[in-house]
Design a protein around this nucleic acid. Structure first.
Lengths: 212, 212, 212, 212
DNA sequence: AATGAATGAGTTTTCATTCAT
DNA sequence: AATGAATGAAAACTCATTCAT
């Protein structure tokens, strides 16, 4: 990210990152077309290269900004307070859904990170997002233990990891046909479509089972 | 897949699929280079297009054949018998490791399937692999219940899904820098490298926790 | 240069190198357009990149082949024999003129080599062409000394260098407006055009003056 | 050059031309980056286009101003006086070296002029610089003849041209890897580096040989 | 007058697919 | 059936020049 980008108005910056997030999320890094991002953002190709060194740098910035926004508007929002652990998680899941809408597609980028072709990026980006998630889930469980919501004999790291998995799977299922289908296969074998509400319910049930 | 491919000798067919699997696994679908696959398989570019309509069709066939091999050489192998559930799962995990080696990289392809850019493929491919996995894990749990290894009050679908997740995460971590790092973050924060043996142990412990 | 290029027919190879030489000579390395070279050579853009790794490699090969052809068809042709030194040089100058015609523009590329922006190439290419020239002129003078055409007290290196300069200036003047004008300024102040014949004559006179 | 440029303060004008000269000299005309010139000169991109119509016009002006400075600070400085011809030439060569330093890189631009891609410029620029040089060398020889330093039978134009060549070659060797290497090849075959002092000495020796 | 952000045509290079042999 | 050379449509990126402020 260049200084020129930082100098732009907030709306313009958001429009560009939002466009990038959308195109990256829909096509994956390699298939994403820089020209399409520019068109979507309403700027010229040349302008983009004044704001970001190259496609890679745009991707990293988009990811970075997305992660920070996710932290601020989703994770940190539902961590404190007196809500029970499941109420918090419910809010978190709904936050993820809301966050993924209205052209805030940064979250979907995350789901590509696991593929082998993204290993170059993984080193830089994995820590950022996973660090945040791990911290959140670990805190959540510790709080739960203190409030006697969770049995103290439960191993915090393992529980946090399992919860993380399930929240991920839920998030993936919002964007990926594969993970959506996987959800249906297990929990709604007959019908094809599974509602978001139902997925939230199941995810919470799965976490309850883990923390029982 | 064209008829011409089916007429080839078994060795040649295997060599081609193995080459495709290797290159797809190492680079992801879009970054995989058709010419490289041909070179690796020892055939000409032109020949490949006699055997398969296009890159997409080659990918689907490779995936398909890989899934079948995984079923035959890994899943079905460790389903029956009198082994306890955890011994079976241990064998399964080791089978996955073994299967991923010796140029049988079909398994790694699977891990790319979740990314949005692969949605075109997901419809066709997800059912195949997930159907197999789901069947296996469901059976495993039912057997475990009958042998009194698993408490009968546990919901089979949910348990199967959670186990599936964990086996997947284990498999992903073998190929993806991101998932490998995620494993380390949670369970080996200090050191950088986490051995396969340790990952197997942790995966089994996680499943034990789920099935407790 | 790739093996695929070596496998081409002699005519096709020559057509490509000739096209490259022409476009490079007329525009200089950086201004030369790869697509134009391809069009001129009657091949597709893709084909060129099967024959040469990149533009740089094409340039070096073109230069290389040109230098070899210059050696074979010009320099070596007029070195031996019983001609007097000035007859040999006369033939050499006419050889250079002939060589530069009929789309054998490799020679003109040489004249760009002195510009600062070509320093990257200079290391590789300078030695080739200058080694050849130096050897030729040094031999010529040594032979001249043995035949009592040249005074033995004359320093061979210095004489060779001065002759080299003058042949270069002659060659440059065939392609470069600047060096052509320079020639006119000194030796034909009134008229604008100076004929090749006259330039040859002057060049020989200059060398006679040096070797007097 | 626009009127707006002429209205600028002398320092600012010099800073701009000096920056242009530096960047042009280091990269050649086509590789020189207008934005870099502006940055180096401490002015905005827009400003440059108020002062000069386009890149080409800036180049011509830079060349022009540089030639005048070269005339004033180098050529005219060492023409008169009672020094012997070789002392004058020695001073001239050192003047060229000095002139090329301290961001007065105009001189290096000259060396690019011979390449074919610069033919557009040659018509305008060649006369200027070559006229000056020719006048200087011709005068020098005429003076030498009057002082009995040079044999009167020597052809003035030819001698002047040959000296010009050698001074040029010396100047080129200061900036161009190719011409530097050429110098080494002929006069310092073993060692890699050849000092400026040595090049000056050799150049003077070559001129002595010409004028003997 | 001056700024510096914005433009968009133009360039090199890649690669899935075709086709003459 | 098999080859592997050839194709040409993209795609990322650059940069002289313009223009709103």
């Amino acid at each position: 990210m260049q200084d020129t980008f930082k100098k732009l108005s907030r709306e313009k910056r958001e429009k560009i990152i939002s466009a990038a997030a959308k195109v990256f999320a829909e096509n994956g890094y390699y298939q994403a077309n820089v020209a399409e991002i520019c068109k979507e953002a309403g700027i010229s190709n040349g302008a983009l290269y004044k704001y970001f060194k190259d496609k890679k740098s745009l991707y990293i910035s988009t990811f970075d900004i997305g992660t920070n926004a996710l932290r601020k508007h989703v994770f940190e929002k539902y961590l404190g307070g007196t809500d029970s652990i499941y109420v918090k998680l419910h809010k978190l899941l709904k936050g993820i859904v809301r966050f993924g809408k209205k052209d805030r597609r940064e979250i979907a980028i995350y789901f590509e990170l696991g593929s082998k072709s993204m290993n170059t990026f993984a080193t830089v980006l994995s820590t950022k997002i996973e660090g945040m998630a791990m911290e959140y889930y670990t805190n959540l469980i510790e709080q739960g233990k203190q409030n006697n919501e969770i049995d103290k004999s439960i191993n915090t790291e393992m529980a946090a990891y399992l919860i993380d998995n399930n929240i991920n799977m839920f998030g993936f299922s919002l964007y990926s046909a594969h993970y959506n289908k996987r959800f249906s296969n297990y929990f709604q074998p007959k019908s094809k479509k599974i509602s978001i509400e139902k997925k939230i319910q199941i995810t919470l049930d799965l976490i309850k089972m883990i923390l029982r």
